[in-house]
Amino acid sequence: MITREEIIQKTNEALKKEFEFKEEQLIPTAKLKDDLGLDSLDAVDMVVVLEQQFGVTLRQGYDLRTVVTLNDLYNFIETLAHAHSK
């Protein structure tokens, strides 16, 4: 089963590669919209990137309103990844 540390590492790697973020920007409390500047189209791209990275479907039940910070995103992926592995 994938650990939380692995989720954080893989998520950050994907965000750095595809969205040109720097390591220091990717703090758990960073807000996706206000701090990282991700707009609604970026959010769609981010979902596709993370789906490819983790091999899970995020779009089913994916609601942008519930994922505000990077930490929310880690939690969201962790829940889905664990549900997927059961």
């Binding site: 040109e20 500047g37 189209l41 970026d42 791209d45």
Partner: peptide
């Protein structure tokens, strides 16, 4: 999207 960071990434909206 802004003049403030000339190295900023290109957002995908225009390409979409």
């Amino acid at each position: 999207g802004s003049r403030k960071n000339p190295q900023a990434r290109f957002k995908s909206g225009a390409f979409y």
